[in-house]
């Protein structure tokens, strides 16, 4: 059997505290194949962002991480500094929720887009800017030459998120990690940005780990879904959206407001940590 692009094997992350440890990722395992898109859903605080940090080895040193993360067979936790930088440069690209905070406000957009190419790929500045302009055009940014000369605060959130997407695509990674890429945007920008991300990734055959609270959106643009609860993946597969099996998933899907039926009150999730632990004990 050939290696998948990314494999997480029983990944645990524990925060070292004064009075012991708090385990925030509790045995996460999944794979993403080449060209495949995995949607990761789950309630706030369930550990979705921590998972992406574990994959890029961006967790705070206060975390103790065990289990293995393999990219094309190479173990990420065991990479040396040089290999890690190369992996971050070429293999994974990260799109963050809030582009305003994640782009340095004091440099021009052009600098943000080209710095990785110029510094690490030996592309000369003129060339890098030409490529940046092309890509901005592809992600639907009009007058791209002009945008390069502007500062981030002069761009709208939706536009800046496209810039962020373009910056990731410029590095030509194999896997994109997108952590709620549209949550911070207004509704119209949301669908545009999502459409562009989906379209570009399919056109380039890139893999995607897509984190969202929007189950329908995840189902629409991903091949498989994984559902997280309290630092664990409770259920994953292509069936999750159509035919959920785990009680938590069923409740989660049932909790969505619907435009077809009007309800007096939105249901409250009854599934909690106690139920979760009980269920786990029964299963084993």
């Amino acid at each position: 059997m050939t290696d998948p692009l990314l494999r997480l094997d029983n990944v645990r992350a524990a925060l070292r505290l004064r009075g012991g440890e708090q385990e925030l990722l509790r045995g996460v395992s999944f794979t993403i194949g080449a060209g495949e898109a995995l949607g990761l859903v789950g309630e706030s605080g369930s550990g979705k962002s921590l998972t992406t940090r574990a994959i890029t080895r961006m967790l705070d040193p206060a975390f103790r991480v065990t289990g293995d993360i393999a990219f094309e067979g190479a173990s990420v936790p065991r990479m040396n500094a040089q290999a890690l930088r190369r992996y971050r440069q070429r293999d994974v690209g990260m799109i963050f929720q809030d582009p305003r905070a994640h782009v340095n406000p004091v440099h021009r957009v052009g600098d943000f887009l080209t710095e990785a190419l110029v510094r690490d790929r030996g592309v000369d500045r003129r060339d890098a800017e030409r490529r940046a302009v092309e890509l901005l055009d592809e992600v639907g940014v009009r007058t791209p030459e002009q945008r390069l000369r502007q500062y981030p605060h002069e761009l709208s959130g939706g536009l800046l998120q496209r810039v962020m997407i373009a910056s990731v695509l410029l590095a030509e990674p194999k896997l994109i990690l997108a952590d709620e890429p549209t949550t911070a945007l207004d509704v119209t920008a949301q669908s545009d940005v999502m459409a562009i991300l989906d379209e570009q990734r399919r056109a380039r055959g890139l893999s995607l780990l897509f984190i969202t609270h929007d189950l329908e959106l995840a189902a629409a643009c991903c091949d498989r879904l994984a559902v997280m609860y309290a630092g664990e993946i409770v259920e994953q597969g292509a069936h999750v959206y159509e035919a959920p099996r785990h009680p938590y998933t069923i409740e989660l899907l049932g909790a969505r407001p619907s435009i077809e039926h009007r309800v007096e009150r939105l249901p409250v999730l009854r599934y909690d940590r106690a139920a979760h632990e009980l269920l786990k004990a029964e299963a084993s």
């Binding site: 994974v92 994640h102 406000p105």
Partner: peptide, 13 residues
């Protein structure tokens, strides 16, 4: 700052 994370995750020196 968050944008420093962005720079780190891009593998810049």
């Amino acid at each position: 700052r968050e944008h420093v994370q962005t720079a780190t995750v891009r593998g810049l020196a």
